[in-house]
Amino acid sequence: MDDIVTEGLTKSYASGWPRRPPFVALDGLSLNVRRGEIFGFLGPNGAGKTTTLKILLGLVRATSGQAYLLGQPAGDVAARGRIGFLPESPYFYDYLTAEEFLGFYGQLAGLNRAAIYQRVEDLLGLVGLAEARTRQLRKFSKGMLQRVGLAQALIHDPELIILDEPMTGLDPVGRKQVRDLILSLRDRGKTVFFSTHILHDVEMICDRVGIVMKGRLVASGRVDELVRQDHTQSVEVVCQQLKVEGNALIHSLASRVLQQGQQCLIVLPNSDAVDALVGEIRRQGGRLLSVTPHKASLEDLFFQEATQQTSRPLPHMTSGRVS
């Protein structure tokens, strides 16, 4: 069962000049987010992440394509009652106190007074703002606003939570709290769809990710699958008492060789040649110190995709990697 489905979602904006082509913010984006998973939506600035989120919530109309949330067309008023949303760098009614603010959103969600009281109490504690409950939002720091915004998104205990850059503006402690909160939401059976450009967070908590570049989904799947599929692991071998200069075999196997005094670092492009290299080191009387496989990260994949898209003005989906 998918909680979010988009099919060929396209959004273009008229340029304002008759002969200038329209600006294409989204170009046939298709993705699906399964119930109960944490899905990270990755992309550089201007890739189309926020536009996608806005279309899903009915804030922006798609030029073409379809989008469904919880089985209903995007923007369906009733379905929005089951969705929680935190926008990027949230701006709220700053004349309200934290509890008034959450109470207002609770009322908009149709909660009764007793339920609002209980949820406000719980959520302010959860996001660490119980002390600031009677303080106006205009006196909040950026991190506090982000946390009260998160509480706002959860006030009605939604099934699907959509977060636009939820880690932005948070210190390391705050980021960890948000990560833990997202994980606890998944443990309670909620679906979390969040956009970000902080790759470390995605790698740590997401079940699946989608990478969007120039309005197109260029990769989608489990983090380990994407990374394994796309990147050959490199291996770093460190040894001593080995003279590499003039050794044709080592130079043919290695992608990089660094000699520093007695120590030598040999970088292999993959693990295939490890045995051959170790054998050669021993034959030459060298002493092996370490063999470290270098695991490719999501960041490597992200940069690879970004580089490819920069060299191609209008990219096509990378076949086989888009689910």
Partner: peptide, 14 residues
């Protein structure tokens, strides 16, 4: 302009 509309329109109101 202040983008407060985002969270309001994401609620079940027309």
């Amino acid at each position: 302009e202040r983008r407060t509309i985002y969270t309001i329109m994401a609620r079940p109101i027309s």
